[in-house]
Design a protein around this nucleic acid. Structure first.
Lengths: 347, 347
DNA sequence: TTGTACGCGTTATCAG
DNA sequence: CTGATAACGCGTACAA
């Protein structure tokens, strides 16, 4: 209490009174201008302007039984990976009639299910969910939803509705093959948090190492802790202490890779000659480091943009030809793996 | 169109029918349980559970003329600085009745004003806005708002309502003094984007240099470009090319500082002996680098937490004793400035 | 402690 | 092309 008084809010009927028509006509003039005669439209627009009318979203939602809200569920707001994605999502949606409502599942499927339930009850225009590891109940809810749903970050053969992402397994497999091609032989793996996508990356990496007869479980280091640069440094340090013969690591993401690089610098381990490092996600910063870090580009900006375009199209009734868009991923070879066997060393 | 049919939604009156009471009693049992007799409460809770009732937020908002939405306006979703803040905000609000609605001003005051207008019309429970540089109209709107408003990231003597942050001017001044104490004499400044807070940091830094007779405008490098690690590397490179006598830089944030460090590594410029580097914000990663980077801790986690606590208290009518909370900021001295004049060198 | 009547601001439906 | 009327689902104000 105690703050200044509310100015009486301007409603549709105020605008109607001002322009001498009924409320429904104002409502139509705003939503379907072509269905209202030109002179009326002008009078109404003028009245809206003069009175400073702003629609009441709650009333719209209640009356029409739908909203312009696109719900976006991501596991974390801190992770750099998602901030790139979010940025693209916001950009794509700005200047459309839709608004983003962001929710945070904290990597919990039960939290995700709870949030989906809440969102669905508010009749969103569309929903974006991260990954493919929803609970059975959540999948059920989403497939019965009366709005388009798009899963992002991953691909799989059984989309709930639509999907745009890439195979984490394949991306990591590419990274492993890259390290092998560069001549590394005792290749380790460092992973943190170990959420489902992280695990699939690990599997992709290990399967390739196995296929080449190079799999050594003792070179695999994982933790449930949240990924960070400092953690990458600590994990690389521990791994090298235990296995000084390690000659390359694939880290589950770029934070860990950068930490690993720093630890190498501290220990005077030569990168890439004594140790190769490959990260994942290709964050902006790994291009800048010295040496620059090899990473896997996952085109998150394009992913966010495509996801929102597909979703908004679907909301307008334009269903995509293909419900699953695979953006794939690409190894960006840089100095940290440029030991050079067949490729020329990076600049 | 063409997705599966909506199940008839469960409303208050369904629950009322199921438990044999009137709708208003159900409504009360949900919002003010103590005002309903125990047996009824139990019957109602059971019915809610059995039917899977979820309140319709639009109807609540329309009937009660207020919402549990806390609007949060930040300039960027990509900037690491805001992700730390956001994370604290989400954590503090989770498990309360409030929900966050995030909006993105893109560092534009006109966009901010537009968003405030939209938010205010939906009767938010509270509003969080970034900084102190709102447009006059926006300030006006916010001071007439019938909900608590808190400005974050900065402090000033004239809060719109409440405020929690720190002085960017002072923080940068501390950084400059730290560099001087460490024996650096030809101190440069590197800044990107140059939003209002960035500018105040620049002013704080330059004023100290000036007071010590060390201000050299030729050592100041700024750009409107968005800050990034790569940009930090490029800007440091250009500055050193032009002024090889530079012996320290204060960078406007940690991205730039890290880029500067990388560029030094590439050019074999010894940090901290030949060049000292001090960043701003104390991101997690700057503790891990080799050498570790000195930075200014701005306690963003605490800021987010305090802001939400103050706001939620104010919503419940508990106005704070002091409307402006100054969290201050602290130089965290690390290896990148440990040339050691009076302090002992960092570990 | 519980219930009745009504209104919140908008849109759907059906007439004119 | 325009309007009257009735919802939408819930909370407020008052009554019992």
């Amino acid at each position: 209490m105690g703050r200044s008084r509310t100015r009486a809010r301007v409603t549709l009927s105020d605008v109607a009174a001002e322009s001498g028509v009924s409320t429904i006509t104002v409502s139509r003039a705003l939503r379907e201008p072509h269905r209202v005669s030109a002179p009326l439209r002008e009078r109404i627009d003028a009245a809206v302007e003069a009175l400073g009318y702003v629609p009441n979203l709650a009333a719209q939602a209640l009356a029409s039984q739908h909203t312009n809200v696109i719900g976006v569920l991501i596991p974390s707001v801190t992770n750099n990976v998602f901030s790139d994605l979010l940025s693209a999502i916001y950009d794509t949606v700005s200047h459309t009639r839709f608004q983003i409502q962001l929710a945070n599942t904290q990597y919990s499927v039960s939290e995700e299910e709870k949030l989906v339930r809440i969102f669905l009850n508010q009749r969103p225009a569309g929903l974006v969910v991260t990954g493919i590891d929803q609970s059975a109940a959540c999948r059920q809810l989403l497939s019965e939803a009366n709005c388009p749903v798009i899963q992002i970050m991953e691909t799989a053969p059984d989309p709930i509705d639509m999907m745009v992402g890439f195979s984490h397994y394949d991306g990591a497999a590419r990274a492993a093959r890259h390290l092998i091609e560069k001549g590394y032989r005792r290749i380790g793996f460092i992973g943190a948090r170990m959420d489902p996508r992280t695990q699939r990356r690990m599997e992709g990496c290990l399967s390739v190492l196995d296929a080449f007869g190079m799999l050594d479980r003792d070179l695999v280091s994982t933790t449930e802790e949240i990924s960070s640069v400092n953690l990458g440094a600590a994990m690389l340090g521990a791994l090298v202490d235990r296995r000084p013969d390690l000659d390359a690591v694939f880290t589950n993401n770029d934070d860990l890779a950068l930490g690993a690089l720093f630890e190498c610098q501290r220990r005077a381990i030569a990168v890439p000659d004594a140790l190769g490092i490959c990260g994942f996600n290709d964050l902006e910063m790994v291009r800048a480091s010295a040496p620059s870090l090899t990473s896997v580009d996952t085109r998150r900006g394009e992913m966010g943009q495509r996801a929102m375009t597909m979703l908004m199209d679907a909301i307008e009734g334009k269903r995509p030809q293909k419900r699953v868009v695979d953006l794939s991923s690409t190894v960006i070879a840089r100095q940290s793996t440029a030991r050079g066997t067949r490729d020329d060393p990076a600049r």
